[in-house]
């Protein structure tokens, strides 16, 4: 009897100690992550402005959501963000996979290349955006200098509202007007190029780690069977790399839905014809500038949250089945 009580006491002590250890982290999580998730729903149903207090705030029901969904600028920001995600995620993915495969061959100076490719990723978006804004400058930027010296017409880069496919097909006499077909505006595409330049090294290192995990004997067996490099890639490398591919797809897609800083710095007014306004940029404009419409911005934030949740769930459902796991 006494022994049982002791055991109980000991357990209680261990439990309380464990909770004590969790307290700091969980306290911050509760106060700055869980509580705001709930508060943000409530705020999104009110006409909260700036630093109003509860007493002056009115419940407005779904009015914020209705306003957001009717807002042309929000539609534009959705389209822009969609363009950004659709182009930057796969392009980064392809370029970094190629870089990783090239680095994984028997070459010297691998760590040198790795360092150089990784360098842009550790530098901050703020500095990089300023740098590339200068790079893309209409009159004295390097980008136009290269075009000019190749005998091509200089481009407007960050102030060109036309879609890249519209620009590409214009010389052929084809005029693409549908926004989805026209692709991101050249201004947005310039930012996409910058983001590819910045994040290639990061994804390359993840791919490289995955490639080095693949057992060499698969390749030896395939070589004996007479598989060419392309077949080896398609039937060994790619399937065995798919858990990492899956991870990278999710991460880069989610990251591209949260993009904001390069737009703020390279095109502070939202770009030509608002073609570089992203969802987060829109949120910032509505919530923290001008009228400080907190309620409205919270509605935008919640829609963004649902979109990101949706992506994760869809990817889990559809891609999850195709992923090959090494036992």
């Amino acid at each position: 009897m006494k022994r049982g009580q002791n055991k109980f006491k000991r357990r209680l002590k261990e439990y309380s100690e464990a909770y004590l250890y969790l307290l700091p982290a969980l306290g911050v999580v509760a106060l700055f992550w869980l509580f705001p998730v709930i508060l943000s729903i409530i705020v999104s149903f009110t006409n909260w402005k700036g630093l109003d207090t509860w007493s002056t705030v009115k419940w407005v029901g779904f009015a914020n959501y209705a306003n957001v969904l009717m807002d042309e600028e929000f539609h534009q920001s959705l389209l822009n963000t969609f363009h950004y995600a659709m182009y930057s995620a796969p392009l980064t993915f392809i370029v970094s996979l190629i870089a990783a495969i090239l680095l994984n061959t028997r070459i010297r100076g691998r760590s040198f290349f790795r360092t150089v490719y990784f360098l842009p990723f550790i530098t901050t978006w703020v500095a990089i955006s300023i740098l590339w804004k200068y790079f893309y400058h209409r009159d004295f930027g390097l980008a136009n200098y290269f075009l000019k010296s190749l005998g091509l017409k200089p481009l407007q880069w960050l102030s060109e509202p036309k879609g890249i496919f519209t620009l590409l097909f214009a010389p052929l006499g084809i005029d693409i007007k549908r926004p989805l077909l026209a692709g991101p505006s050249l201004a947005m595409f310039s930012i996409i190029l910058t983001s590819i330049w910045r994040s290639v090294g990061y994804y390359m290192i993840i791919f490289l780690a995955g490639l080095q995990n693949i057992d060499k004997s698969y390749y030896e067996a395939a070589e004996i069977d007479g598989a060419n490099p392309w077949q080896r890639f398609l039937h060994i490398t790619f399937p065995l790399l798919s858990p990492i591919t899956f991870f990278i797809l999710i991460v880069s897609l989610i990251n591209s839905f949260k993009v904001f800083v390069p737009m703020l710095i390279m095109t502070p007014s939202g770009g030509p014809d608002n073609t570089t306004i992203t969802i987060v940029f829109h949120l910032y404009e509505k919530g923290f500038q001008g009228l400080w419409l907190m309620g409205r911005a919270s509605a935008v934030a919640y829609i963004l949250f649902l979109i990101i949740l949706g992506i994760t769930l869809i990817q889990n459902l559809f891609l999850g089945r195709r992923v090959h796991y090494e036992s």
């Binding site: 989610i254 934030a301 990101i308």
Partner: peptide, 16 residues
């Protein structure tokens, strides 16, 4: 918590 984008929590956190 990892699934919740930080940007979605800016406003409530600002108010807190």
């Amino acid at each position: 918590m990892m699934m919740v984008p930080g940007q979605a929590l800016l406003i409530p956190n600002y108010l807190t």
